[in-house]
């Protein structure tokens, strides 16, 4: 028995301010996106501009985060690298997501043998370690932005597909999806009209997680020198370049590492918030 059952009054969906941690997360993500869009325009110096003769000049008004191993402005380079790091991560995730989502929803809806077969293939693909795939692909094809995006997308796709399939399976067992099937809706219509709207929230969580994963993998590839190649730079390669500075006590390597860390944490805070509310809603709906 649910309260207000017999009354016909409208129960509007409550809109409240997100909880504090989520607000912090949203702020971090917003700053990250602004950096990704406007970073190069905000930077005072060019990415390759030499500001100082000495390596690792100390922080000052002119160089808020100090300089790097060639005497370039760390803040400016951070801003120049932001679109590369974030853009690559978003691009790769989007590629993996579109493929994974389509495959996952499709197998959940058609079921039967097609589902069994695709699930087998997905399981095999998932069993390869992501970094191994990336290393092989880059060793074979060389490192360029499209290759990086494609490789990471390929890493993501089967993982996203498995999650999407599980989410879709839960939703597709519900009567309203059954009603759509009984009506004779096509597989595509069931996926888009019936399953997707209810899957949006859990899949948004998955997207967030995948973006973090992309940022971390790309950064570590760049750190190993296999990712973004000079003269282009991203946060991961900034860490690598300035490794030697750590022993001199300069923050040049720590700043990009911190940027990576803070952005990842921020995305995770947002995910927790979305995930928390969607999880509750989903179980509510399933148990009603």
């Amino acid at each position: 028995m649910s309260a207000g059952e017999a009354t016909a009054q409208a129960i509007p969906r409550p809109r409240r301010l997100p909880p504090p941690l989520a607000c912090i997360g949203l702020a971090i993500v917003a700053i990250g996106l602004i950096m990704a869009l406007l970073g190069p325009f905000l930077a005072r110096h060019g990415a390759g501009e030499l500001i100082s003769e000495r390596p690792f000049p100390a922080a000052s008004w002119a160089l808020p985060f100090g300089g790097d191993h060639l005497g370039r402005d760390v803040l400016s380079r951070l801003l120049h690298a932001a679109p590369v790091t974030i853009g690559l991560a978003l691009g790769a995730t989007t590629v993996g997501f579109v493929i994974g989502l389509t495959v996952g929803f499709f197998t959940a809806e058609v079921r039967g043998r097609t589902d069994t077969m695709i699930t087998w293939i997905l399981d095999i693909l998932v069993s390869f370690p992501p970094k191994l795939i990336a290393l092989i692909a880059i060793a074979g094809l060389g490192s360029s932005l499209p290759i990086l995006i494609a490789t990471l997308g390929f890493v993501h796709a089967p993982r996203v597909a498995r999650v999407a399939r599980a989410v879709a399976m839960n939703i597709s067992a519900m009567d309203f999806v059954e009603a759509a099937r009984a009506r004779g809706e096509s597989v595509l219509a069931v996926m888009v009209r019936e399953i997707w709207p209810s899957a949006r929230r859990p899949m948004a969580v998955e997207f967030g997680l995948r973006v973090t994963f992309s940022i971390l993998v790309l950064s570590s590839l760049s750190f190993l020198g296999l990712g973004v190649q000079p003269p282009m730079t991203d946060w991961g390669s900034m860490v690598r370049e300035n490794m030697s500075g750590i022993f001199l006590g300069t923050p040049a390597a720590l700043i990009p590492a911190l940027a990576i860390g803070i952005l990842t944490v921020g995305i995770n805070l947002v995910i927790d918030w979305i995930g928390g509310s969607s999880g509750r809603r989903l179980t509510e709906e399933l148990s009603r």
Binding site: M174, D175, F176, E178, A179, A180, A182, R183, R193, E194, P197, S198, E285, R288
Partner: peptide, 14 residues
């Protein structure tokens, strides 16, 4: 056409 038992579940909530 078919009408299901529970109208809570048979209408797309979105």
């Amino acid at each position: 056409q078919i009408i299901f038992q529970s109208p809570d579940l048979s209408l797309n909530p979105e």
